[in-house]
């Protein structure tokens, strides 16, 4: 018989809530651990980019696809999605956010590398060096709150058309990423590219030293560090447009300027030596 003064069922409900919560956290952590495993494999492979000459980059990209990592990432994410579907996403989001950012970063990096190793890509198409939220969403098969924007802006439109920015969807179920995750991934990309810029000079120089008897057409040139410099500068100016509050995004944004400076120094050093 229920207590007429105090309905004790709410405490039972709370207990259930606590138990379900503990169980859910366990399940999510298991899935995130699987995702992190694949991520470690990916980053291990991609770290070899730093000791690879630009002309050989396509090999690493090919290896990335042949190894099935792309598929494994999608699988791990879909596993995570299955666990969190129907559950209060915001409650558990902190558990997977950083891994999800890392996955997006991998996609951005691979996209960048495939673009620059593609000979038909010219340095002027900077937008093409960056995978759009829609690209990321389609590659990972993960929903994205920015996707509709991507769809509507790639089509033709007139300026008088009214539209809204969907920031957030309380009822969007399952796994998704939004502006913040994407921007964090871009910052990771900038961090990585500034390191790559330095290492490219080394790999290009050593390759050219080995091939010094060959004709000039076989030799590698130093366009890629210049391209990286221009690319991350345009990303930096993009970030400067944002009104960042005092959060993790702001702190990481503050670090970009050192990356930009590093790539600028590389380009300067190349320029003064007449290597460009």
């Amino acid at each position: 018989m229920p207590n007429p003064i105090l309905d004790g069922s709410v405490f039972e409900a709370l207990q259930r809530e606590i138990d379900v919560n503990a169980l859910t956290v366990e399940l999510i952590k298991t899935e995130v651990a699987k995702l992190d495993d694949v991520l470690r494999n990916c980053t291990a492979l991609l770290s070899r980019v730093h000791s690879t000459a630009p002309s050989q980059l396509s090999r690493i990209i090919a290896e990335y696809y042949d190894s099935g990592y792309a598929q494994k990432l999608t699988d791990a994410l879909s596993g995570l999605n299955n666990i969190i579907e129907g559950k209060p996403v915001y409650k558990y989001k902190p558990i997977w956010t950083s891994s999800l950012q890392q996955v997006i970063y991998v996609i951005l990096y691979v996209h960048f590398l495939s673009r620059v190793s593609d000979k038909t890509c010219t340095a002027s198409e900077f937008a093409e060096l960056l995978a759009t939220p829609k690209d990321v969403s389609l590659t990972l098969k993960v929903k994205c709150t920015m996707t509709n924007q991507a769809i509507q802006y790639t089509g033709s439109h007139t300026d008088d058309q009214e539209s809204k920015v969907v920031y957030d969807l309380n009822d969007l179920d399952g796994l998704w990423f939004g502006t913040e995750e994407y921007l964090h991934a871009i910052i990771s990309l900038i961090n990585e590219l500034s390191r790559l810029s330095v290492n490219l000079v080394t790999t290009i120089s050593t390759t050219n030293a080995l091939n010094k008897d060959q004709s000039d057409t076989v030799k590698e040139n130093f366009t890629l560090p210049v391209m990286i410099n221009t690319f991350i500068k345009s990303l930096q100016s993009g970030f400067m447009m944002l009104n960042l509050k005092n959060d993790s995004l702001r702190r990481r944004f503050d670090s970009i300027k050192y990356d930009v400076k590093k790539t600028e120094d590389v380009v300067y050093d190349l320029a003064v030596r007449g290597l460009l």
Partner: peptide, 16 residues
């Protein structure tokens, strides 16, 4: 226009 870097960041600004 989200297909340009500037457009993308303009979108992000609105969103943030």
């Amino acid at each position: 226009r989200i297909d340009s870097i500037e457009g993308l960041f303009q979108y992000c600004r609105g969103s943030l």
